[in-house]
Structure formats: C-alpha cells, structure tokens
Design a binder for these strands. Structure first.
Lengths: 348, 348
DNA sequence: CTGAAAGCGCTTACAG
DNA sequence: CTGAAAGCGCTTACAG
C-alpha cells in the first residue's frame, strides 16, 4: 500500500519563509550562494566574476521570491539616492506638470527619480526629519528666486525660468523678450500703434522681462504708445484691469497680456463693452496653455516649451552633479497666430 | 615678552573638520557626549533620560554644525520611510495638483511626505532599482484602475475617484451621480426636455457613472429625450461631437457635457452655428476647473472638491497604515449655476 | 543620567 | 569564480 498522501499532517514548512520582505540574504539562501554574490549579480557587476550558471540561479531565486532591493540600505551604503527634487511654486497649473514630465523623462534615462516639492503651505513641517529634503542628490527649482531654494542645503541646484542672473546656479530660461518682441512686431505689422499692456502683478523675472521688452518695442515704433494696468493672474482681476485700459479716452487697439489667463479676462472686458475681438480689439496672450484654444476666438499667443524646460533643466543638473559646469541657456518661444488679432478698425 | 600671536604658523586645524556632511558622531564629538545621546536628544526621546543641560549642549552643537540626520540610515534602521506615493494619470491638469495639495497637507501634519508618481511614459525605467517604488509606506492612486496600481507591490493602497468597487482597497470617490442628477434637475426645472450628452470617450468609472446618472434622470422625466455623442477630452473633438448633436433634426435645447473642457467645445459648436449660449442653447460642464470662469458666458457646472479628495484619501491611507479599516466614502459635488443655462427658447 | 554595542540591508574591496 | 567581512549612519534595547 502506498503512503497516504491526503492524510499527511500539515507539517510545518521546511524552512520558515522570511517574515517580511525578502532580503538579498534570503535570495542567497534560496540560490545556495553567498549574499555578496547575489548583490554582484543583481547589481549587474558580475561579468567575469560570477559564472553565468550561478548568475542565472540567483536571478531565478530573486524572481521567485519577488525580491526587491531595499533602497534605504542601498542609499546608505552608496551615499546617493539618485533622486532629485523639483521645486515649483504650485502644482495647480498645467505648466509645471509639463516641466515635471520633461525632467522626469531625462532623469529616468539616467536612473534618477524626480520628486516634486510642494508649495510652502503644503510642505512637510519644519521638522529636521521632514522628508524628503535630505534624501536628494540635486535640485531643480522652477520660477523661483534663489533665496527660496537656499533652505535646501548644499545640493547642486539648477534654476529654471528665474532669469539669467539667478545667483551662481546654472539657469535655463525662456527667451521671453524675443517672444514679446515677436508679439509687438506682429501687432505693429497689422497696423496697431496704441497698445495696452495687461501686466501680471507678480514679481517674477519672467514678467519683468516681458514688460520691459514690450515697452522697448513700442518705444521703438514710430507713433507707438503704451498704457499699462496690472492684475493678479486671475480672470476677473484681469477683466478689471483690461477694462480700465479700454475706458481710456485714447483706447488701445491691441491689448498685450502677460499670460493667457489675463487674456481671457481681456476678452471679458471687451465683451462687456460691446467690443468684438479681433474686429474692434486685438488681444494676445503668452504661454499657450490649453485655455488659449478653448477661448473664442482662439488666442494668438506665444508658445513656451514647458516640457523642454524640464528636459534642459534636468540635463543641466545631471551635468552639474557630475562635476561639470553646464552653460546657462534660453529656450526660444514661438509666436502662434490664431484668431484674436487683426488690423485695427479704422477711425469710427 | 609675550608669545607672538600674529606670526603663528598656519597650524593644521586641531581636529580636522569632517569632510562631508556632519553625522551624529560629529555632533557627539563637538558636544562631548556619546553618539547615542545625540540620537536621543535630536529624536525627542530624551525626557527623563538625558539632563536638560546636556540636551541643550547637543542641540547647540547640532545647530552650529548644520547637522541634518541622514534619512537613508534612519529609514534603514526604522524600516519605514514616512513617504507615500501619489499615483496619478497625468500631472498636466490642475485637478491632480489640487489632489496633491490636499494629500500633502494632511501627510505633513503626520510627518509624512508625499511623492508624485509620474505618468507611465515618464516613469523610471523598469529597472529593479528604479526609485522610488521601494521606498514608500503607502500608495494613493487617483483616477486609475486597481490593476494599474498592482505593480507597486504590497504597500497599503487607497483608491481615489475610481469607483466604489475598486477591488479590495478603501476608496474615496465623488458623488458624481448626485452631481449629474442636480444638473438634470436644474435644466428640467428651466423647462428643458431635449438633452444632448457630450460624453467623455474615456473608460473611467467617473464618466460611466456620469453617463448612467444622466440617462436615468432624463428617462424619469416625462417627455424627456436624450441623444449622445462621445469625444476625447479635447476642445476640438468636443466641438465636433457637440456639432453632430446640434445638427440633429430635433436639436437638443441643452448640452450636458461630461467635463468643462468638453463644454468649451460645445460653446464653439454653438457659435459656429450662430446659436447663442444660453439664449438658444444651454450648456453645462462638470468639475469646475478654472476654465469654467474663463469662458464667456461663464459656465454652469458641478464643483468637485479635488483638494478634499486628497485630504480624505490621505486620511484613509493613514488609518489603513495604522492597521485600521477605513470606511469608503463619497464626497458631494456642488452645482454651481452661472450664466450658461437658461430656459429654452420657444419654438421659432 | 550616559555610553557601548547590535543591527537594519546593502556594496565593495579583499582574501582565497 | 566565490565568500567573509567591513561599514554606510542611524535607533534602541541593554548595562552601568
């Protein structure tokens, strides 16, 4: 009679499976090798040091145990986390999402991860143990001042969209002056002379640069005139500011807005006064956010390559972390002419 | 004669300053105590175990050296990172930014950090060492299927905006059915009977639920009729889909759109046909993104508390990580009546 | 009240 | 080709 198979008592498992997550030691035991061999194989440094057969065995054991290396141990040993921080003023904007994507793609190709650091009010408390400040190899800060980043310690920093003079860090910027000049030239070519600037009431380099470039371009235009009103980046605030400009005795024939949201406000101000865009009033935006195409008429604006900003920023940081001195650079924007600009109406 | 002070040879510093970042051992040496005392003091566990005077000395030494604990070592020792992952389908949307803010705020109050996991195509390569998958204590996944999150291992998971039946994980959802019923009731109250549904061609629970709720509400309305066209969430695709509906012989008097972007497309379709919103056609959105206020007329829509979704999601995850069984919940939306809805025009 | 020591899980010389 | 050992910087019993 053969031994009863079914009635076998529920014997204890031969070797108690490790309680928690498997470690390289568990893999070593399963594969019948030493822990260091496991590390060599899984770290990809085994060529010529471990026999192919052993390497296979190790990999199979790791696979079947579902082994994943403990990154804390790895980071401690190596002194590096292969993680960089992306510091942005807000995440509630599709712009920074695009910057993130660009940065994360480049990072991934080099085995780095990107962590987004939240706006101040949402950040980890001031505790010295607050994650993840310490656990990073480098920092990319977008649209901030150098000072705002100084609290992050001595890690290598690249500044994005913060102006070419952002301290000693390498910078990547948009050539917003060129973009604004292209707007002015486009409008001037259409015949506009009386310009209104709906400015962003935000103290950032990019807006200062946009304003200065517009002022210079209009000043250089024979017969050119410029009036200006500032507003927070908010549709209703912009509507108000644009309205002031439109109520001026010598009404501008074109409203140049510092960004697309401001332009949406300008549309509203025009509509409230019975003014047609672009027949009675030309309006331009800046940035080319999705909003620009949702508006009616669709908005003439300057496309800023946000994702490319992330790509270039990460590339620069990688170079910096390797000890290089990446050159600062400026990315060109592109004037996108849509339906919100036209020649000015003749005198009534 | 006193010893010459000025001419003293540049002696080597008494004790060579530590080369890299200071460690707790450096602090201990500076404070004249043991490394474990430093750890106790800085970890806040010294009450009754270290004299107040010693604690002060330690803190001053830490301060003056600029000591920050090494989180890799801490994580390794503790087996926890106090970091959770927020997995979202895209960052290029203000919606997920708001979810992040909400989650990060709650997390910060409990000493946790939140890391955003990128969309697939930007994620770290499939390398087993890819950060930061291993280094997390829990996961919040928003607007995804349970399967999409299964690759992250055995960490506790909370599903957001994925439907109440998202596997075994606790869920936090929006009560989108209620929201859609409120839209239908609002429109019905205005006198509308012929509805068009501009549906999102996206296979997610939230859109299935919106569509089903609308269909049921219209079916329950005496004399109610519903036609439907689907489009990708894109202004131009929506314009096309809405246009089909508007070209129907029995033209709908109200277009109910699955989200605000779709509604922007509906505006365009209306305008292209010389139809006034809301005089000739009522339009509703869903989500209440910033776009809703940028549109002209401003959009009647359903406000979804995105930030609260993050807050509730993180609270649930915290409870889950502590071994609890958080109840699944649904957050109410709010109908926001603006200027895009009005009684239907009488028969021409 | 304070310190010496173990150990978290890795990587990497080093010895065989 | 393979293994034993040191050590990254912490936290926390444990002993005094």
């Amino acid at each position: 009679m053969s031994e009863p198979r079914e009635a076998a008592p529920p014997a204890a498992p031969p070797a108690a499976r490790p309680a928690g997550r498997p470690t390289s030691r568990d893999v070593a035991q399963a594969a019948g090798v030493s822990q260091s061999t496991v590390s060599l194989v899984l770290g990809g440094k085994w060529a010529g040091r471990v026999s192919p057969a052993t390497a296979r065995t190790v990999r199979e054991a790791a696979e079947s145990l579902g082994y994943r290396p403990n990154s804390a141990a790895r980071n401690l040993r190596l002194g590096t986390t292969r993680t960089v921080l992306l510091v942005v003023p807000t995440l509630t904007s599709s712009f920074f999402g695009a910057v993130y994507i660009g940065a994360a793609r480049v990072a991934a190709r080099h085995g780095f991860g990107v962590v987004v650091y939240p706006p101040d009010d949402a950040g980890p408390a001031g505790s010295p143990f607050a994650a993840p400040r310490e656990a990073i190899d480098g920092i990319i800060a977008s649209s901030m001042t150098k000072e705002a980043v100084s609290g992050f310690g001595p890690a290598p920093v690249v500044m994005l969209d913060s102006g070419p003079a952002a301290g000693t860090a390498p910078t990547v910027d948009f050539a917003v002056e060129d973009g604004m000049r292209a707007v002015a030239a486009h409008l001037a070519g259409l015949g506009h002379r009386r310009f209104g600037h709906v400015a962003a009431a935000v103290d950032e380099w990019t807006f200062r640069a946009r304003g200065a470039a517009l002022a210079a371009a209009v000043a250089a235009l024979p017969g050119g005139g410029l009036v200006r009103a500032a507003a927070a980046i908010d549709v209703h605030a912009a509507k108000e500011a644009a309205g002031e400009l439109l109520d001026l005795p010598a009404r501008p024939t074109a409203l140049v807005c510092d960004d697309d949201t401001l332009a949406a406000g300008a549309y509203k101000a025009a509509r409230a006064r019975g003014l047609e865009v672009p027949g009675d009033l030309s309006v331009t935006g800046f940035d080319d956010m999705p909003l620009a195409m949702a508006l009616e008429p669709e908005l003439t604006t300057v496309r800023l390559p946000a994702q490319e900003l992330g790509v270039q920023g990460m590339s620069a940081l990688l170079e910096l972390m390797e000890g290089g001195r990446p050159a600062s650079r400026a990315l060109p924007g592109e004037l996108v002419v849509r339906a919100s600009t036209a020649p000015p109406a003749g005198p009534p």
